[in-house]
Amino acid sequence: MAFSWILFTFMAAFMQAWRNAFQKQLSTTVDVWGVTLARLIFGLPLAIIYIYSLYHFSPTKAVVHFSPKYWFYIVIAGSSQIMATALMVQLFKQKNYAIGVGLAKSEAILAAIIGVVFLSDHLSLYAWFGVILGGFAVFLLSRGHQFTGFSPKTLVIGIGSGLCFAITSLLVREASLELTMLPTNIHRASWVLLSVISFQCISMLIYLGLFSRQTLVAMWQRLGLTFKVSFCSFMASLGWFTAMSMISVPIVKTLGQIEILFSLLISAYFFKEKLAKAEHWGLALVVIAAILVIWA
């Protein structure tokens, strides 16, 4: 169980890479908020099925209690993730697919800084080196396309997305730490996952139902693709939330940068985008950074 967070992180990275690919496809016919809701609409029933199955196969007599602080974390984390996803979709439209993902990967460094400064988190010297090396690797991956069409707007959207994702990840972990009455990290993460998805899904449905019903119609017209986005998003969140309940967020997110490898492969073979030489160096550094944080 000591290294189970690694398996959950790899699963999350792999599924998130596919989720981003499907989101890019969906964004051609559905607006930003519809693509954001697509991550959640089928995720809610999947989360309910998951927590029911977990308690069926791994029952516990512990009764879960939700403190006001827990709900504060859930609401802020859920809102931040919605904004992060919306910015990510906008980023896809500013740059090509691979760079869009790469710029938002500032999340790991931002999570490390925020966690240490505001949440009394602690990272070893090796872990800090791995996080920083991972950030430099992302920079190399972005330079692989020579910043074609790069603009300050792209940078702001990318950093903004990374910051919102970092806040989400840190508060998800804080929410999980509030559920000390539950026996395992997996049980704690399952409740946090259900809580976040429920808040997000209900909020988005109410908003779009009141102000943008045509978006719901557009999603219905691409139901199959919407389901693919939801399923991959749910599996990714399941992996992230569980891993982050086990170990520090910057560690998880640095290892999770292996997602870039999956994203670039999808970019090359699914979207037929060519990879530059600098990206090979970037990928090598991502692997080294991942080894460092595992070692740390």
Rank of each mutant, 00 (worst) to 15 (best):
Leu103Tyr: 08
Val249Ala: 09
Leu182Tyr: 07
Ile41Glu: 00
Ile48His: 01
Ser67Leu: 05
Met88Arg: 07
Ser151Gln: 12
Gly102Met: 07
Ala296Gly: 15
Leu141Gly: 04
Leu87Phe: 13
Ser237Glu: 07
Ala104His: 11
Leu7Ser: 15
Gln16Glu: 09
Leu44Asn: 04
Gln94Cys: 06
Leu292Lys: 01
Lys277Met: 10
Val64Cys: 08
Trp18Ser: 09
Met246Pro: 04
Leu194Lys: 02
Phe211Leu: 13
Ile41Cys: 01
Leu179Trp: 05
Ala278Cys: 01
Glu174Leu: 14
Val252Met: 07
Trp191Tyr: 15
His122Leu: 13
Ala98Tyr: 03
Leu208Glu: 13
Leu46Val: 00
Thr36Ser: 14
Leu177His: 11
Gly43Tyr: 01
Ile51Asn: 02
Phe147Trp: 15
Ala38Met: 00
Leu193Asp: 05
Glu259Leu: 06
Trp220Thr: 11
Trp295Gly: 07
His122Asp: 07
Ala236Arg: 03
Leu44Met: 15
Phe211Ile: 05
Ile41Trp: 02
Thr154Ala: 15
Ala77Phe: 11
Phe150Arg: 04
Leu182Ala: 09
Tyr70Gly: 04
Lys93Gly: 10
Thr226Asp: 14
Val32Cys: 08
Lys272Gln: 13
Met204Gly: 02
Ala98Asn: 10
Ser233Glu: 00
Pro152Ala: 10
Lys61Met: 07
Leu261Cys: 07
Met15Asn: 13
Leu182His: 06
Val117Ile: 14
Ser195Tyr: 00
Ser27Gln: 10
Thr168Trp: 12
Leu44Thr: 01
Cys164Pro: 03
Phe150Ala: 14
Tyr73Met: 03
Gln23Trp: 06
Phe241Gln: 04
Ile288Gln: 00
Gly162Ser: 10
Ile197Glu: 04
Phe136His: 02
Tyr126Met: 14
Ile202Met: 06
Ile109Arg: 02
Ser27Tyr: 08
Cys232Thr: 14
Val30Met: 05
Ile99Leu: 13
Phe211Asn: 13
Ile109Ser: 13
Val249Ile: 04
Lys253Ala: 03
Trp5Asn: 04
Leu179Glu: 10
Ala112Asp: 11
Gln25Gly: 07
Met181Gly: 11
Trp18Pro: 00
Arg173Met: 10
Leu119Lys: 03
Glu273Lys: 12
Met11Arg: 06
Tyr55His: 13
Lys69Tyr: 15
Asn185Val: 08
Phe234Asp: 05
Gly224Met: 04
Thr242Gly: 11
Leu182Met: 12
Leu283Gln: 04
Phe3Ser: 07
Phe150Asn: 07
Ser195Phe: 01
Ser161Trp: 01
Arg173Val: 09
Ile157Pro: 04
Phe241Ser: 05
Tyr52Thr: 15
Phe57Glu: 06
Ala268Trp: 06
Glu273Pro: 09
Phe66Tyr: 15
Pro250Ala: 07
Val229Ile: 10
Gln94Arg: 12
Thr180Tyr: 12
Leu285Ile: 09
Ser169Trp: 10
Trp33Lys: 08
Lys105Asp: 12
Leu123Arg: 01
Ile76Gln: 09
Ile51His: 00
Gln25Arg: 10
